[in-house]
Every structure is written in C-alpha cells, then in structure tokens.
Nucleic acid binder design. Structure first.
Lengths: 338, 338
DNA sequence: CTGTTAGCGCGTTCAT
DNA sequence: ATGAACGCGCTAACAG
C-alpha cells in the first residue's frame, strides 16, 4: 500500500471522490448508508488524507511555526511545550526551529517557514534586529505573536514578563539586605529582556540611593558558558569586588555560582546571588537561588492561544500585549553582606 | 502582496512558469540573461515558492517528524536540539510532537504526521505498545528511526545507550563502596530503557553476591513528581531501609534527593544515590550526582543523520543499531554506607 | 534553451 | 443527496 488517495477510496466505496471528501469533512448532507460504506473503505485502505493537497486547496496548512533562540534553554523549552500542547489540541502541528540567537539564521528560518505556508508563527526573537523581518511578515499577512522578547516600536501581539518590575524586586531584595556594591551580568543590550532588567536594576539602585556604577554591569551570553565565567571572574577580580550579583537569567546564575565556588567562595556568605527565571526540577541546588520565577509554560500556552485566535480571525484589534507577572522566590543564595 | 505565484513571476519576467521553476531549482539549462530576468522578478515580487505545492508534485515535503515523550525533559530536549540541527543543515524542517508518554496520543500524533506527509520520523517511543503502530509505518514505507528506547522484536534503525552496562557500572560502584541493600526506582517495565537498566542492576548485584530482593525495586514515573516521592518514601519507610538508591534517570534522582532531604536525611551520609543521565547546567547541585552521562545531543544528531540517509536511499541494509556508550561520572552523591 | 501538456490529491463551485 | 469540472501552485515529461 503506497498511500491510497481519495479516489481509491471512492472507487472502493462505489461513490465519487466528492462524497468521500464530504464524509471526511463531516458534511451533513450525506446519506447514512453511503457514509458507512465510505468509512469502511477508508478503514480498509488505511487511507490518510494528504495534508499537502489539503493545505493547497484550503489555503491553510494547519501548521504553526515556533522559533526560539535555544530550544535547550529550559525557559524556552517550557514555552515550546506549552505552545505545542495548545496547538495540538486545536489540531495544529508545530514546526520547530532553533535560531541559536543568530539573526541570519533566524531570518532564514522564518523564510523557510513561510515557504512551508505555516498559518502563523510564534517567535521568541533573537534580538532587536529581528524587527525588519517582522515587517515583511506582517505584509505577507501571516499572523505572528512575539513571546518573551519584544522589539522597539513593535505594535503587534506580545506575551512577556515584567522585566523591570522583576529586576527591581530582586535588586531591592539585595539592597534591603544591606548590599551596596551590586553587580549585574546581563546579555547584550539588543535583547529587550536584558534592557528591561537593567532598567529595573537601575531603578532599584536609585531608590536605595546607590549611585549607578557602569563598570559593575558586564555583558555575557547565556549560550556561551565561557563568557559567563569570564564576566564573573572579571567582577570578582576587581580590587573591590561586588558583594552581590544579579544574574540576568538562571543559566547565567549557574555559571556565576560555579565560578564563585571554583574560586573558593561560599554562597551566600562570600557573595549573594539572585537571578531571573527559576530552575525547574532542582530544589536541591546549593544554595538554591533566590529568583524571579516566571510562568514560562504559560507564556507558551497564552501566546499560542492568541496566535490561533488571530489565525481564525477571532480577534480584530491591533495588537494585544499580555504581561505575566513573575514571583519573587526568596531562598538561600542571597544574605546580608559581611 | 498576498503571496505571488510562480506564474506571476513568469509573467513579470516574460517567460513561462517552467523556466522560473528551472531557475529556482538551479537547473543548468537556462540562459544567463533569462536567469537574471527571472531572479529580478522573484526579488521584486518577494516571491516564495509554495512548499505545499512543491511537496505535492515532488512527493516529498522536506519535513521530518520528531516525536518524544516529554519535550521538557532535558534529555529529550537535547536529542531534539541535535536532531533539529542536522535536519536544518540538510534543508529539512522539523515537525515536533510531544506524546506525553501516552500511547494513544503518540499514535494519534504519528497519524497526524503521516497525514502531513513527513518524509521520515524520529521516534523516542512511549513504550513497547508503540510497536504495532510502527509496523503500519513500515508498510507505508515512511522511513523512521528509533532513539533511546527500543521495542521487543524491532529490527530497524535504532540509536541508543547501553543501559545494561551503564546500570551495571553504577551499581557496581555502589557495591564496591560496600552497599548491600541497594534499591532501584524504575519506570514502568514496558519501557526498554527501564528493563535494560534493571538487568544491569541485577547483574551487578549478582556479581557482588547480593541476592536480588524484588521488594527493593519500585516503580515511578519521571513525569509525575508525586509518584517519585511516593516511591522514595515507601523505600525509606521500610523497617530496614536501603543504604543506597539507583534512580533510573536524573529526574527521578532529583525527586529522591528532594524527598530524602525533606526527611532530614543527608546525602550521601545517610543515603547514597546514583542515577542515569547527567544534569546539564547544574554542577552545583548538592550533592552533585554520581551518574552515567549519556551523549544525548549526539543521540539526536546521529539518529537524524541516519534517518536522512535512509530517506535519500543511501542505505540499503536492513537496520542499523548504534549503541553509544555512557560514561560513569563519580561525584559526591554516593559514599560508603555507615 | 524554452514552452506545452498533464497531473500531484484534494476541495470548491455548480449542477443534477 | 451526489457528481463533474475546474483549479490550488508546482514540476516531470515531452516537445520544439
């Protein structure tokens, strides 16, 4: 059996292809007896409708693309899982692609997905530079929803966390503990979440009357463990090192903890550490991070729901922005400075 | 611009659709001048070939499916990442689906993917029960490759770790430390990896002259944290509790560590713990697990490469079995019994 | 080197 | 309630 077609089924059932199509699509105007004959033929042939042909005529593929910077980053993984779940329930397939945080690759991926005629796209943008491509997308009227990261001037659908507020809480927690030399390890400034978290960091410092020291803010890439180590070491090598570090996300925090411990520092005694994003599955991290926990999987479900609604034309407003609050979880990685 | 077609391009370039097609597919027999005119038209219209239509005529969609039991499980996530990378480089898209370890859902997913006319499928089977569906797959001559988990009697392509040997090493490590009451928390017996690891467990016990005690082997589901806690508590509640636990994978181990610590037990002083699969990103787990590290991402890359080779008909042998060795990494979670 | 014809497998008219 | 004809966008097989 080399894949039966609708005509094979029709022949076997002694009807026309059209009638088979009606049965398949649950059209009401089919006699019961005919319907049963067709169903029997479908079963006998193990017939599976050809999605490509269907997509071609119906002009929609029942497939949505999900593009993330790193599928192995637990935060994005959860987004993907949430999105897949919602898509699946609605009868949509998920085309996954990993941009690796690389704008060129992301751009290529988006083009590929468009060629596949996806009905919509969920995008955790690599960086601000993704914007130009999005405009093209908009013109092709392929609905898309941004998750987690936004882009300056973007006016479409977006599901994100509150980076300013989260960072503010984290750093305020540190200042309340008595820290005054608080460093931040951030990702490049062309990523909106980094910018927001840095804004929150500065707001909290200001609120505590601590002057902003640019040399205490260093850049690293979560994907690149070596860059995180280098950043942490740079900070700790300073004549007067910081007493606390605010890591832009959990992966960076893990790198900082690792580096500190390798230098014989004990957390939180010798260094306090807080970060964005909780670590799944690992309550026995030592010390378990004080962090802003974000509902990552919910980012995915809400964003996908929004996308699907957009696809089915249920929504007609310009662009919805959903901001999901994070939760400050105080644990053991931060204490008063010595 | 509501998506131009090949005919629009042809008209604009003053040629036939066929010529445009030739240019698009880098056919050699096109005059340079014509080619340039076509390329200009393509650029001007922002034309993107319709992958659905292409797939329909070419009879291949350039898409492969990847089906895993839990995309948020770091082990599978890495497999997916490796697979996606290889697929992408070869110009294939990845349709991702999450079976949630549920046979019915897996079956439905596979059918859906077949309807989408994927060119092949990478499958981390939910359980032995996946077998029947695979036979159907084979008949539809859609190439597929199994990863990580196998199925009794399966004769096709497979990329997996050596569960027997890994488990043997882990448990031998424990017996060498002096443990004799070694429990195992396993997943259901219809998952091949669980069976293999249990075999290794028994072999190691036998080699050490320790009689096998069935009551020391308890079942849990890695997806379900509560079941892991229940299993661990059941073990620790015994009149004479085990001095060591072999957890079938890292997620289960995390649950065991959590449970033990909640009971005021200190690892490894009060309980030794070893497991399969390393924890990515978390060297500061306390105590950091002694484990068999498996090259998960490599599982994904090799399996996808195998699949693509199969799709392009490069291979004509019956079925290849690739067994990737794991590595025993001795760390702090296991020590001599008190 | 280029164009014509004829489908790929399905769904959408419009009849009957 | 059912069917015939046509087209979705593209390419394989032949012309020429």
């Amino acid at each position: 059996m080399v894949t039966a077609t609708i005509r094979d089924v029709a022949r076997l059932a002694g009807v026309s292809a059209m009638t088979v199509s009606r049965v398949l699509n649950a059209s009401p105007h089919v006699a019961d007896a005919t319907r049963r004959r067709v169903e029997a033929a479908v079963a006998e042939l193990g017939y599976v409708p050809n999605g490509l042909a269907r997509g071609l005529t119906r002009r929609r593929s029942k497939t949505v693309a999900v593009v993330v910077p790193d599928i192995a980053n637990p935060f994005f993984t959860l987004i993907v899982r949430g999105a897949e779940e919602v898509a699946w329930r609605a009868g949509y397939h998920v085309l996954l692609s990993n941009s690796r945080g690389d704008l060129d690759r992301e751009r290529a991926n988006i083009d590929d997905m468009l060629a596949s005629r996806v009905d919509g796209m969920l995008l955790a943008a690599a960086a601000d530079g993704s914007g130009s491509k999005l405009k093209a997308l908009g013109r092709d009227d392929v609905p898309f929803v941004l998750v987690d990261r936004t882009i300056p001037g973007y006016r479409g659908d977006l599901v994100k966390g509150d980076g300013v507020e989260g960072a503010r809480q984290l750093v305020e927690h540190l200042t309340a503990l008595g820290h005054r030399r608080i460093a931040m390890i951030t990702e490049p400034a062309d990523v909106s979440t980094s910018r927001e978290r840095q804004t929150g960091y500065r707001e909290a410092l200001e609120a505590a009357g601590i002057p902003f020291d640019p040399s205490l803010v260093v850049e690293a890439s979560a994907i690149d463990a070596a860059s995180v180590r280098a950043a942490a070491n740079g900070l700790l090598d300073r004549p007067v090192p910081p007493t606390a570090v605010f890591a832009v996300n959990n992966l960076v925090a893990l790198g900082v903890a690792d580096t500190a411990q390798a230098r014989g520092l004990e957390l939180p005694r010798d260094l306090s550490l807080v970060c964005f994003d909780d670590i799944a599955y690992a309550p026995q991290l030592n010390p378990f991070f004080t962090a802003i926990a974000q509902p990552a999987e919910t980012f995915g479900t809400i964003a996908m729901q929004l996308l699907l609604d957009r696809i089915s034309g249920l929504l007609d407003d310009a662009g919805r922005i959903v901001v999901l609050p994070g939760e400050l979880v105080v644990r053991a990685s931060a204490s008063a400075p010595r």
